[in-house]
Design a protein around this nucleic acid. Structure first.
Lengths: 209, 209
DNA sequence: CCAATTGCCTAACAGCTGTTAGTTAGGCAA
DNA sequence: TTGCCTAACTAACAGCTGTTAGGCAATTGG
C-alpha cells in the first residue's frame, strides 16, 4: 500500500527505546508491581517493543533487575552526599541530619523510580542478584555510618546509641514511607521535617523538672 | 505383600496435615521467599502432600494467602492489646508506649511466621487480596490511633505531631526491622528498648541551655 | 554506493503456574 | 456388612515464563 511511507512519520523513531528506555520502564514497573509479577513481556510491551528484543540489550532478566538495583542506590547516595556537602562549613548535627534525611526521602518519594524500585523489590529478587548489589549498598551505608560516627564523636549524638543499629533504624524507617506515602496528602518535603523532628527530639512532651 | 500393614506404622497419620498444617507451612514459606516465588507445589511439597490436594482445603491460592494475612494482623493486634491492658492502672505514656512497641516487635521477630509473612508479602499480593485484608488491618491501626490520641490529649505527647502520621512512622519503622534483624546479633527484646528510647526521646545529646 | 552494524521482529523451546476432574483408601455410623 | 465422609492421590489443561535462533529493514562508515 501507499501509506507505508506515510505511516512511518507517526511511528516512534527507530533507536528511541534502547537500553536506557527499557531500563526506565523496568524500574517503573518494578516499583509499581514488585519483582515477581513483572515479566519480560510486560516490560517489552510498556517499552513499545517485543519480548525477544530485550535480549539485544540485556543478557537476562537478572541483568536488568541488577542494573535497576545498582542505579537505585547510586541515585540516593549521590543525592545524600551532595546535600550534606552543600552545607556551610560549621553546620551542626541538627542541620546535617536534617539535610541527609531530607535528601534520602526526596530521592525515594519525589525523584526516582530507580531508588523506590530498589527498596520495594530488593527483598524479592534472587539471592544472586541481591549479592551483586551488596557492594553498592555497603558504600551508601558506610556514608551514613561515617556521618553518624563523626557526630557522635563530637558529642552531638547520645553516646549510648549503636551507630550501625541507628543507621538501620533510620534508613528502614525512611524506606518504609514508600508503602503508604501519598503525594496528595502532603509533600515529601514536609514529611522529611516530621521524620527529622521525631528522630532528633522524640515525641514525648518534655517536662521541665 | 505382608508388610502393607507394618509400613503403615511409620507413615504420617492420615489427617495430620490438614488445613492448619498447610497454612503454617504457607506462612513460613511466604515469610522466607516472598509471595511470587512460592508456588502451590512448593507449599504442598513442604507440607508433605501433593499440589492438587490443597484444593480440598482451600478454593484458590488467593484464599490461602488471604488467610495468612488476616491471621498475621490478628496475632500482632492481640499481642499489643494484651501487653497494654496488662499494665497497672496509672501507667504513664512512657510505660504504655514501651509496652506497645515491645509487643509489636516481639510478635514480628520472635513469635509468629504469620505476622512476619504479612509484613513481608502484603505489598506483593494481588490487589483483591490486599483489599480483603483491609478491615483487619484498619482495626489494628485504630487501636494504635486510640492509644496515641489518648496520650496526646493527656498532654504527654507533643501537641504538634499528627497522630495518623506518627502511627505510620512507628509501625513502618518497626516493620522494617524484618529486613535486617538477626537474632544472633541481639534480641528483639533489646531492640525494642532501643526503638522506644529513640522514638520517645530522640538521638540528640541534650544541651542544658 | 556498497558493506557492515544496529535494533528490532518472529517463532519456537522447555519448564513452571494455578486449577480441575476423576479416583482411591481409611474411618465411622447405621 | 453397607455406605458415606474425609483427605488424600493422579493426570491433565491452558496459559504464562525466561530464553534462544534466525531473519530483516534501516542507519551509518568507508
Amino acid at each position: 500500500m501507499a501509506n507505508t511511507t506515510a505511516s512511518k512519520l507517526n511511528e516512534i523513531p527507530r533507536g528511541a527505546v534502547g537500553r536506557g528506555g527499557v531500563l526506565d520502564v523496568a524500574a517503573r514497573l518494578f516499583r509499581e508491581q514488585g519483582y515477581g509479577s513483572v515479566s519480560l513481556r510486560k516490560i517489552a510491551a510498556a517499552a513499545g517493543i517485543k519480548a525477544g528484543s530485550i535480549y539485544y540489550h540485556f543478557g537476562s532478566k537478572d541483568e536488568i533487575v541488577a542494573a535497576v538495583l545498582d542505579a537505585g542506590i547510586q541515585v540516593v547516595h549521590e543525592s545524600m552526599r551532595q546535600a550534606v556537602s552543600a552545607l556551610p562549613e560549621g553546620a551542626g548535627a541538627e542541620a546535617i541530619l536534617r539535610a541527609a534525611i531530607r535528601a534520602h526521602l526526596r530521592a525515594l518519594l519525589d525523584v526516582s523510580d530507580y531508588s523506590s524500585a530498589n527498596v520495594r523489590i530488593f527483598g524479592q529478587v534472587p539471592q544472586s542478584v541481591r549479592d551483586a548489589n551488596l557492594h553498592t549498598r555497603r558504600a551508601y551505608e558506610a556514608e551514613w555510618d561515617n556521618l553518624l560516627s563523626r557526630l557522635q564523636a563530637d558529642g552531638e549524638l547520645k553516646r549510648e546509641v549503636d551507630i550501625r543499629r541507628l543507621r538501620l533504624m533510620l534508613i528502614g524507617a525512611l524506606n518504609a514511607t514508600l508503602e503508604w506515602f501519598d503525594p496528595h496528602r502532603g509533600s515529601a518535603e514536609a514529611l522529611s521535617r516530621t521524620y527529622a523532628d521525631v528522630f532528633l527530639n522524640g515525641i514525648l512532651e518534655r517536662q521541665e523538672t
